[in-house]
Design a protein around this nucleic acid. Structure first.
Length: 470
DNA sequence: TTTTGAGTTGTTCGA
DNA sequence: GTCGAACAACTCAAA
């Protein structure tokens, strides 16, 4: 019997995998393949991908299948497999980045006449082309999008791994996962990600189970970097090791009776994830161009030294440095702190959001083009959501509010670990005579930087200069 | 077509 | 310490 191909992409799981289920239902032998491509480029996420592919390969081999690993253009790789096997069909899950969509249309063009192509919208609660305003245009503001999306109804329940699957036994060319070099960049940098993370479908499911006790207070705990009360599901979701429907169903299942504020807040985050992909789908330039075009004229700073100090976590603002160092150490940063460091880069330092976005994409294990681009634009104030331009995070106030004892700073900025909570967010207040720590001086005074940012943002909006200016 | 209400996550100042 | 108002003006989405 002729085989069918399942092209694994960001759906590295066996449970609730629409493409796999459909492929299994044919009853034909399955050829599973992953194609490493230009989008698999971040240092931290390449590390994760390596582990996740190993995990998937192991799961498949236990079922008698072999995951083929290839590199290159998907249309050429699939054509090659087709030529070697006389496969009849290819199954895959859609992605919504511009490059991914180009790959899909290339495949359609190259193979559409020879292979049956089956594409599934399997990554989001709602496919991006199914939600629109009354006039048929895409939503640009989250809340109306969320109302429209939730009005559609709950997503379907997750489906189990297909019970009957047979795999092709034909021997085909494959790379080994190790030979792709996905770990090289992380190793060169001494990125010890295995200390923090356990990639793979089984670990993602474990993580989901561990969520139950914190869901009820998620709306409070998720803002506290000193606690461990976020879901930490982002990398598992990014690689599709678990499906967004599984998360939805689990959170719903924890408290079927009535949804707590915490559970509602977590579900809302899932819709934010949808919304970011939705925006990227409808505005393919989202990663590079500000959605508000007047920001093309913004007078950004090109200071390499400022950018470097931010990247290294040597800004002299403890909460900022803690976040940037957490990122370098673990490939992850608490969401609240992501906003603080992003505000600091774009507003206190006036460095372009694209530079921050690029650093995040390279260093986050959960680096996701859609979320990253949409969120950076939001912080920078150039997205379509109305973020008032005067909303500039004060790194001291944010530290005092969300890391009240300073435990988070103490963990990631060890040179400040002997400072009491009352001083730790303002170490410059400790008199030099008594200070026993070595820590960078503030690179800017936030009060001054804030005023400078307000003026810059006013001018890009074409408004008159500050009334406070002398 | 026009109008109206609203827009994830904040900060500062003065009462 | 706590509270409310001010911070600009604009665009979006729906009535």
């Amino acid at each position: 019997m002729n085989p069918v191909i399942i092209w694994f992409r960001r759906n590295l799981r066996l449970i609730d995998n629409a493409a796999l289920i459909a492929a299994a239902e044919t009853g034909q032998p399955i050829i599973p393949v992953y194609i490493v491509d230009a989008q698999d480029c971040g240092t931290a996420s390449r590390w994760w991908l390596h582990q996740s592919l190993c995990s998937l390969q192991k799961s498949l081999s236990e079922l008698g299948g072999e995951l083929l690993i290839r590199e290159g253009r998907p249309d050429e790789v699939l054509a090659d497999i087709f030529a070697a096997t006389d496969a009849t069909d290819v199954y895959y899950s859609r992605r919504y980045e511009a490059l991914s969509r180009q790959q899909e249309s290339d495949i359609e063009a190259a193979l559409g006449e020879r292979l049956q192509i089956h594409a599934f919208d399997d990554d989001l609660l709602h496919p991006p082309n199914t939600i629109h305003t009354q006039t048929g245009t895409p939503y640009k503001i989250f809340t109306p999008f969320w109302r429209a999306a939730t009005a559609v109804g709950e997503p379907p329940s997750p489906r189990p791994t297909p019970e009957a699957m047979s795999f092709s036994s034909q021997s085909l060319a494959t790379r080994t996962i190790s030979s792709i070099g996905l770990l090289t960049a992380a190793a060169d940098r001494g990125f010890e990600l295995e200390k923090t993370w356990s990639p793979g479908e089984a670990s993602g499911l474990d993580r989901l189970d561990e969520l139950a006790p914190v869901v009820r207070r998620y709306h409070l705990g998720r803002d506290r970097p000193d606690l461990d009360e976020t879901s930490r599901l982002s990398p598992h979701l990014h690689f599709g090791e678990i499906s967004v429907r599984q998360v939805f169903a689990a959170v719903y299942g924890f408290e079927r009776e009535s949804l707590s504020d915490g559970a509602a807040a977590l579900l809302r985050q899932l819709y934010w994830r949808d919304f970011s992909s939705y925006l990227l789908f409808h505005f393919p330039d989202l990663p590079t161009k500000p959605l508000r075009p007047e920001f093309e004229r913004f007078a950004w700073s090109d200071s390499e030294t400022d950018l470097l100090a931010w990247q290294r976590g040597e800004t002299g603002y403890p909460i900022v440095d803690a976040g940037m160092r957490q990122l370098l150490a673990t490939g992850w940063m608490h969401n609240r702190v992501r906003m603080i460091v992003a505000s600091f880069l774009t507003k206190d330092l006036l460095i372009p959001w694209q530079a921050g976005a690029a650093w995040f994409l390279d260093n986050l294990v959960d680096a996701e083009l859609a979320n990253n681009s949409a969120s950076w634009q939001w912080v920078a104030g150039c997205g379509t959501d109305a973020a008032p331009f005067f909303r500039i995070f004060n790194p001291i106030r944010q530290g005092l509010k969300f890391d009240p004892q300073g435990d988070y700073v103490r963990q990631w900025v060890p040179e400040l670990q002997d400072l009491p909570g009352k001083d730790i967010h303002e170490p410059w207040n400790v008199s030099p005579a008594t200070a026993k720590f070595q820590y960078p001086a503030r690179m800017v005074d936030h009060g001054v930087a804030r005023q400078r940012a307000l003026d810059a943002y006013r001018s890009v909006k074409g408004m008159r200069t500050s009334k406070l200016a002398p």
